[in-house]
Simulated scan of single mutants.
Amino acid sequence: MGVEGASTDRFEPVRAVLGAHLEAGEELGASIAVDVDGVMEVDLWGGHADEARTVPWHRDTLVSMWSTTKTLTNLAALILVDRGALDLHRPVAHYWPEFAAQGKEHIEVRHVLAHTSGLSGWEQPFCMEDLYDRPTASARLAAQAPWWEPGSASGYHVQTQGQLVGELVRRASGRTLTEFVATEIAEPTRADVQIGARRADWPRIADLVPPSRLGGIPTGLDPEGIFTRTLLGSPARDENVDTPEWRSAELGAVNGHGNARGLARALSVISRRGQVNGRRLLSEETVDKVFDVQADGVDLFLGVPVRWGMGFALADARTIPHMPTGRVCFWVGRGGSIVVMDLDRRVTFAYTMNRVGDGVLGSERTHSYLRHVYEVLERTG
């Protein structure tokens, strides 16, 4: 299957590189979108939605996005911050009293959004059945002690961030995270994104295909190290994706469903300084808070330098190659999906795919598309 969709002439190199990856079999199915100040200059898709290559990737194909989901979840929190329902500098326990247990009474909302709360995984034993049960998963985190001094460093909250932020959204808004994203993000931005997946949409979800050789948990790890505790305390694995339980759950860190067009539309609210489709979802002051640096150094779980702002990583060449400089924030999902919000250029770039690639933060394909998009923008202005 070739590349379908539309792109302006200047972005022809992006169409060409997607076609090349599909032709070489490096991509199975994928979508790419580039929104430039409200104009979708790139809206491309191609390949197949299944590993057997019998179902084409269509315009409205969805895929499970792993951690790119966090961009929607943290946007939901920022919308509540903008409305005064959440305060970034208030203790989480102000909204969630049970959370004060085990010395967590001083952990602030900002620590949760920036992966510095010390709750990067669940204490063992903790399994997928516990994760799928929202009250249980929340109660376990509320009862847990932090694994390092909150605010002192980041340790990527691989699967716990969705639970922590989701609980704050629920308590501040009276709605579930799934409901809030649907009504306050997807609807006003006309974005085809959701947390979990409505049963009516299951037929258009592409299979997420993991690497052919799945690696187990490495041997020789320090059992008390943050990396090990986070890895073991984050139970979701590739085999859980695309199951009925996964699609029916609310996992704000990992089980969002969407495509590049949907991501670009939803997150363009940040690139465009809070306003989209004639509606203001965030004030410019709240958008500025995204760039308030909360941690800057080697992340305790990821093992690479990350500059964390409020809910998003901030552009840094140490983190991802070809990332532009300036007021740029982003995040990625397992296997390569990404959304980049560039306020200086008012550009939003998104990529989703169903063949899981290698790499801690994006795959070689991710970096290739990012490079081509910014080469076009630098050349054409």
Rank of each mutant, 00 (worst) to 15 (best):
P125Y: 08
A186I: 04
S271H: 01
D342L: 08
D43F: 10
P146M: 12
R365Q: 12
A49I: 04
V63G: 01
P56A: 05
G336F: 00
T68F: 01
G162Q: 11
W148P: 08
E284P: 09
Q294A: 06
R213C: 01
E224Y: 09
D296R: 10
V34I: 06
G309Y: 08
F301R: 07
Y156A: 07
S234K: 10
W308D: 02
S173P: 07
S212A: 12
R204A: 00
S283Y: 10
T136V: 03
V298T: 14
R134Q: 13
T325P: 00
E184A: 13
W246T: 10
T228Y: 09
E284C: 12
R272I: 00
Q124R: 14
L113I: 12
P13L: 05
V347R: 00
E23Q: 15
V158W: 07
A317C: 06
F312H: 05
D37F: 02
A6M: 10
E284N: 14
S7R: 15
I205P: 00
G311V: 04
N259G: 05
A317E: 09
G103A: 07
S271C: 02
R307S: 14
S173Y: 08
V169H: 12
R280Y: 03
Q294R: 13
I226Q: 11
A114I: 14
A186D: 02
G297P: 03
V298C: 12
G258K: 03
I320Y: 13
L88K: 07
D60S: 09
A206C: 10
T189H: 00
I320S: 12
Y351N: 08
S173A: 14
V39M: 04
M1S: 15
A20Q: 12
G162N: 10
V306N: 04
L231T: 13
L86E: 07
W246D: 10
G309W: 03
L177W: 08
S152K: 13
G103S: 10
T61K: 11
T183C: 04
E245P: 04
Q163T: 15
V36Q: 07
E285M: 09
G29R: 14
L251Y: 10
S31F: 04
L78A: 12
I79S: 03
I338M: 14
S138E: 15
F291P: 00
V42A: 01
L232V: 15
G118I: 07
E26D: 15
L343N: 04
H94Q: 05
